[in-house]
Amino acid sequence: MTFPLRESRCFLDHPMNRNSDTISSEIHLHVHDRQSPAITERLRTACVGIAGCGGLGTVVAEVLARAGIGKLIIVDHDVIEPSNLNRQRYTISQIGMPKVKALAENLTAACPCTNIVPVREFITAENCARIFQPCSIVAECFDSAERKAALVAGLRSALPSCIVVATSGLAGIGPGELIRTVRVSDRFYVVGDMQSDMEQSEGLFASRVGIAASMQAHVIIRIIAGVQQ
């Protein structure tokens, strides 16, 4: 078993730990002691794309990395601003950094066995197929309704075998229970309450955005585990 280590920021760098591949594998086994080995093995060989590294993307990426996803392609063009920190999993010291760089650092620190591929690019309907070509599943984690729609159309047209898990309706402080997962077709899921627009609500809160992000990550884990219908 090999787990490609990107630049290591933990004790794996210590000179005593020379055989980092072996150590990495051992860490992997213990990190996932509390989840089914069969599912862990399926997750280890999966590649998932994260389109947008904001309130949704930072949570989906972290949940999947902790569960032991083999490879994550994280994509965003933007830098971290103070107003992101109410819900996006960055730190004060990371303000001004490109989101993909900061997220790659945070994920690598917590989950060195996941191969993180940061891509700092503005995703469009035209370039999404090139960026996400290696992925079997892509999580749409954008803010803008127009960009969500364009990405879904672009991915579904250009990468027909790729499963898209999108979101719609997670703004405001409405009940968390209204957020649900809808299977639109074989390879297209939408998570959200389908209504709560950020422009006509109380804004964006970590609690409700986080519910949607966790449900997005959960349906992805279920698909990879082979239990999602």
């Binding site: 947008g52 904001g54 309130g55 949704l56 993307g57 309907a125 984690c141 954008f142 803010d143 803008s144 309704a145 127009e146 969500k148 729609a149 364009a150 879904v152 159309a153 672009g154 579904r156 047209s157 999108a166 979101t167 719609s168 309706g169 997670l170 703004a171 639109v184 077709s185 074989d186 297209f188 939408v190 959200g192 389908m194 209504q195 709560s196 627009d197 950020m198 422009e199 609500s201 964006l204 955005v209």
Partner: peptide
């Protein structure tokens, strides 16, 4: 019928009797 219709084809792609149509409306936030 399970196939995505790209926005550039919205004004040419025909819907016929018996078709299964899914329309997902997106709202902002993330």
């Amino acid at each position: 019928n399970g196939e995505i219709v790209s926005p550039e084809h919205f004004n040419s792609f025909m819907v016929y009797d018996g078709d299964r149509v899914e329309i997902v409306s997106f709202v902002g936030g993330g």
